[in-house]
Design a protein around this nucleic acid. Structure first.
Length: 312
DNA sequence: CGCCAGGCCTTAC
DNA sequence: GTAAGGCATGGC
């Protein structure tokens, strides 16, 4: 077992692990005390969160070796503590975007009442940079689905098709962690298998998308390096991926901080607070609200506003 | 029972 | 390019 601590009180704009992992951006971490997103711990709690990462789902530079890696992290006054089955500090800096200059990002954001309240409510919340394929599948599953059930669907896919790693839990007793499956393993699932996991009509979407990635012709990470709107268009080739899901993958995995996923909550916010940004279609509304939310940091503003509206 | 949940696909104009 | 209808599942 390897352990380490990252001094986070030096990070610009601070860091808040709980809101970062429980704000509906990532579906790949679980709180060790068993509580879910819907029953969040009191703010400032120091609960452990754990995940398991299959190296085949992340860049080689982030995780060496072939076997899945179990990771847990917790925040305790000014420090991010971690324990894992391998060296994961570079991986954590990437996944949690600890290099982001939050103070500068906020300074580039507009500060109307809603946005200021949202920033103040979750100081230190960061956008995540989850592995591309697991993020793609998570958000295919998110269509017309409550957040708690998206967690359940992702958990079930990892349990049934993900590779495992043995690692002691916070209490020291050995347990088995399941990484999110690779495209190859998920493509082996049948549509019926996935329906049994509660995916409903998303089952064939996930299966066909996993097949596309496993076949090697397309990969969500290939959207990196494209201009934003071309990257969004590229991702819609995957089955079950429209413009909204594509924006989620761009923002929560691929580092496109200008992406503003237009979900039901943001549509409500647009109607109520930014009615002049409402347009007839996704692309035009997207451009208008992106401009209003500060352009290249608009995704940060969206994520704060989304979580603020959902929890108030 | 009806309505809704971080929408997308297919079909018809 | 835009609009309408269908779609699985579970919570309320």
């Amino acid at each position: 077992m390897r352990t380490g601590t990252i001094p986070i009180d030096e990070l610009s704009g601070g860091f808040d692990l709980q809101s970062t992992l429980e704000s509906g951006q990532s579906y790949l971490w679980r709180r060790a005390d068993g509580h879910t997103y819907e029953a969040a711990a009191p703010h400032g709690g120091s609960a452990w969160y754990h995940t398991a990462v299959d190296p085949r789902n992340v860049d080689d530079a982030l995780l060496a070796g072939e076997d899945p890696v179990a990771v847990r992290v917790r925040q305790t006054d000014g420090r991010l503590e971690w324990a894992a089955s391998a060296e994961v500090e570079p991986l954590l800096w990437h996944l949690l975007r600890l290099d982001d200059d939050l103070a500068a990002i906020r300074a580039r954001s507009p500060e109307d009442g809603l946005i200021a309240d949202a920033y103040d409510a979750f100081r230190g919340m960061r956008i995540v940079a989850d592995p591309p394929f697991p993020t793609l599948v998570s958000f295919i599953c998110s269509a017309q689905m409550r957040v708690a059930r998206i967690f359940e669907m992702v958990t079930a896919q990892a349990r049934e098709f993900g590779r495992t790693v043995e690692f002691p839990g916070p209490d020291g007793t050995e347990r088995t962690y399941h990484a999110f499956p690779t495209p190859e393993r998920l493509a082996d699932a049948t549509e019926a298998d996935l329906r049994e996991l509660g995916l409903g009509y998303r089952a064939p979407y996930v299966r066909r998308t996993a097949e596309m990635v496993a076949d090697g012709e397309d990969h969500p990470a290939d959207a990196r390096g494209l201009p934003y709107e071309e990257a969004r268009e590229y991702l819609t080739r995957f089955v079950g991926v429209g413009e909204k899901v594509a924006d989620c993958v761009l923002l929560f995995s691929l580092g496109f901080l200008e992406a503003v996923p237009l979900d039901t909550w943001i549509h409500t916010a647009i109607e109520e607070y930014y009615p002049d940004c409402a347009r007839g279609n996704y692309a035009d509304t997207s451009r208008a609200i992106r401009e209003r939310f500060g352009g290249d940091v608009a995704g940060y503003v969206q994520t704060y506003v989304f979580f603020y509206l959902r929890t108030r």
